[in-house]
């Protein structure tokens, strides 16, 4: 049993999917918490402060490398599993009866994941790329978006203004709709992914599994609603 044998076995691959998935789930909690600071109605002062912390702290930046690696691994592993599973039935059934034997979203994780990936490319283009590389391919010149806002006598990236530009600027209605659809895909993806990860780790327990499933539903719906509320609130002018 080499390490390679384990991580390329069917259960090893599932283990990696679950482990990277749970790491990404933990990341979303931080992401949503900091972003929700736009609702303090202080022109993004608190949000920019913590955005700056996340962008400049050595530990966080190191974790970011891990986050990217895990995200890529999750995507690669998902695609390779999808291909392998697809090939496991070369001749398809003429008739299949999908009458609620399994949840539809448990069978469409690949599709939902692809929708999230398409959304992520747009999302990175809007926020991650300008904040890391400065204005590169930003929808507005950097001079207008991320030039420093004075905070505690230090210069920070004005990510709040970047959000405002994206969600209230040109084509903002289409962008907001795409963001909301991205959150809907995320919600279905998490509804299956959260509880599924625990089954993969071998947790199927009469007392813990119902608890895990409930937490999964509350988390998936909650985090998706919170994320979706941000572009919508900005678009409607509720964030000052």
């Amino acid at each position: 049993m080499t390490w390679k044998h384990f991580f390329t076995s069917s259960i090893g691959k599932k283990f990696l999917m679950g482990a990277t998935g749970l790491f990404l789930i933990s990341f979303l909690v931080i992401h949503a918490s900091i972003n929700a600071m736009i609702f303090f109605q202080d022109k993004g002062e608190t949000f920019n402060h913590w955005g700056h912390f996340m962008g400049s702290n050595l530990i966080v930046r190191t974790l970011e490398i891990g986050l990217m690696a895990f995200l890529l691994l999750h995507i690669y592993q998902g695609l390779s599993l999808w291909r392998q599973n697809h090939n496991a039935r070369p001749v398809k059934y003429a008739v299949t009866k999908g009458d609620g034997k399994s949840k539809w979203y448990s069978k469409t994780m690949g599709l939902l994941g692809t929708l999230i990936l398409i959304f992520l490319i747009m999302h990175f283009y809007h926020f991650w790329v300008p904040s890391r590389f400065g204005g590169m391919a930003s929808i507005k010149p950097l001079a207008e978006t991320t030039l420093g806002q004075e905070y505690n006598s230090q210069s920070v990236h004005n990510l709040y203004q970047e959000m405002m530009n994206v969600f209230t600027g040109s084509y903002s209605m289409i962008i907001v709709i795409v963001y909301v659809l991205g959150c809907v895909s995320l919600c279905w993806h998490l509804l299956h992914g959260f509880q599924s990860a625990f089954q993969t780790f071998g947790v199927n327990h009469k007392r813990y599994t119902p608890l895990i499933k409930t937490i999964g539903v509350v988390y998936s719906v909650g985090i998706s609603l919170l994320f979706a509320s941000m572009p919508v609130a900005m678009y409607l002018g509720w964030v000052k």
Partner: peptide, 12 residues
């Protein structure tokens, strides 16, 4: 064989 994705159709 393919890999389980926890859809649970087998059990049903």
């Amino acid at each position: 064989f393919g890999n389980c994705t926890n859809t649970y159709a087998c059990e049903a």
